[in-house]
Design a protein around this nucleic acid. Structure first.
Ligand SMILES: NC(=O)c1ccc[n+]([C@@H]2O[C@H](COP(=O)([O-])OP(=O)(O)OC[C@H]3O[C@@H](n4cnc5c(N)ncnc54)[C@H](O)[C@@H]3O)[C@@H](O)[C@H]2O)c1
Ligand SMILES: NC(=O)c1ccc[n+]([C@@H]2O[C@H](COP(=O)([O-])OP(=O)(O)OC[C@H]3O[C@@H](n4cnc5c(N)ncnc54)[C@H](O)[C@@H]3O)[C@@H](O)[C@H]2O)c1
Lengths: 226, 226
DNA sequence: AGGAGTTTGTGAACGGGAGAACAAAACGGA
DNA sequence: TCCGTTTTGTTCTCCCGTTCACAAACTCCT
């Protein structure tokens, strides 16, 4: 947005590309596990589900990591992308709201393997206090500041009901968290320097429903009363 | 894309707009619950977290539902958007993979209230069989075809491990499902007429990590060994 | 060593979406 | 009835992202 300090290695990677880098990273990990040591942009593009020209252009923002006539070294490229994204080391994460979704997130092993470490689970409900989820004790929300400070947490996950989301976000920001992943179906407002990404499952379903309705041109009639 | 049959109300709504309509719908529902009967594009835009010009342009694709000098009737607009998206009636949905995430989804009440009804929970694991989650019995994956047929299911949710996702998708498509919401971190390929949307929480976190790394310019050093 | 074949990196054309800006429309008050 | 005020619907311009197409670069084979 604002002109970045052009010093350092501050290459400016388009947002659309940033969103695809994790997909490439995953595809490369899969290829690597299958024993592939080299791959062409075409192969990787298929594995990632994108156009190969787009893939090449995306990678070109990082640098020239391929060899013409040969392709890319899987391990090398994987590392370069991981480094660019910043997942070569662990990011400490706190999850707030340990209900249905929060527990599923806490139990998910995929975060750990992708560079994220859940350092604390917080919930406002005293009844949840001291419960153990995924090897971590659920702690009172008031502990947030202490935890963020102790573990240098920069990323927070909100899995509370929508009504509580703005308040939780405000407190996170006050504690110094600068990146928020919000699962609550509500718009939360934060200062400019804080990044918020939202995941709204209902919206995804509604988008599918829209297209579905289009396919069956007008009337998904008969199953209504079924 | 291709010239649609201009008969019927087949207006062509841009994909970016379709993705925002559910957000407007949610904002309108909130306004309605607060007792607001009329709102301007500016008010609604704030509630939805978008630019008011963009909001007006989006709504203009649906028709002229506002009144100049006045604004929009909240209830009326809410209904029009719901109708356009196709959530004025219930869409039956099946969830496959009743693990951590699948259970959370099954227990989530927000789907029901937004036009989606979970009609079946399927899992390949015999140990999960007959378990009751959210009032529904977990059934064997083999029952998929029967269920899809009986309830005229068009939308399927995949919450299995990544390795099983493609197979589950293939079977869903074979049964006649034409819209898939995929939570497994893998690319699945389906015929053209089938819509797939993916939700990948790890990717979201990685995008946050990228920007986070940028903010702290190079070195999120000290917390590594903490 | 040289030429044929392969694949990357990128310039350029294209399409779609975002936002500013404004004219048209509705309302209210005099 | 007429004018000022408000707010929508839409046009216009700009920017970002996608895709095509190709020259540059590298390998391998003869
Ligand atoms: N469960 C799902 O599959 C699903 C799907 C889509 C969206 N969501 C959204 O995710 C959020 C969580 O869903 P859920 O099903 O886990 O809900 P839930 O009610 O099971 O859990 C919410 C948890 O948040 C805690 N909480 C409430 N206020 C809090 C506060 N101020 N500070 C800290 N903790 C607080 C509650 O004690 C509870 O444990 C909701 O906003 C929901 O709309 C959930
Ligand atoms: N739990 C999370 O918060 C989370 C977060 C991000 C992504 N995911 C992804 O969502 C998916 C599910 O995650 P989870 O934590 O619930 O995993 P899980 O292992 O708890 O559950 C997976 C379930 O799928 C079932 N299953 C396996 N193969 C199947 C098949 N062929 N047909 C039908 N059912 C089958 C298993 O029996 C199991 O019950 C995974 O792909 C995971 O990567 C989960």
């Amino acid at each position: 947005m604002t002109a970045r300090t052009s010093s350092e290695t501050a290459r400016d990677i388009p947002e659309a590309t940033v969103a695809r880098l994790p997909v490439y990273l995953r595809a490369l990990t899969t290829l690597s596990e299958q024993g592939t040591s080299t791959c062409s942009s075409e192969e990787l593009a298929v594995a990632a589900g994108v156009n190969s020209a787009k893939l090449r252009k995306d990678l070109s923002y990082l640098g020239s990591y391929g060899t013409r006539g040969v392709g890319y070294d899987v391990e090398y490229l994987r590392y370069q992308i991981a480094r660019e994204i910043g997942v070569t080391q662990d990011w400490p994460v706190v999850i707030v709201g340990i209900g249905n979704l929060g527990q599923a997130l806490a139990n998910y092993s995929g975060f750990r393997s992708r560079g994220f470490r859940t350092v604390a689970l917080l919930d406002a409900d005293p009844a949840r206090r001291d419960e153990v989820v995924a090897g971590l004790v659920v702690r009172p929300f008031a502990d947030l500041e202490q935890i963020v400070h102790d573990h240098a947490v920069a990323i927070g996950v909100i899995a509370t009901p929508a009504v509580a989301a703005q308040d939780v976000a405000d407190r996170m920001v006050a504690c110094g968290i600068t990146s928020i992943l919000n699962f609550a179906p509500t718009v939360i407002s934060v200062p400019d320097q804080v990044d918020v990404r939202k995941v709204d499952l209902s919206i995804e379903l509604q988008i599918l429903a829209y297209h579905e309705q289009r396919k069956t041109q007008g009337a998904p009639s008969q199953e209504v009363g079924a």
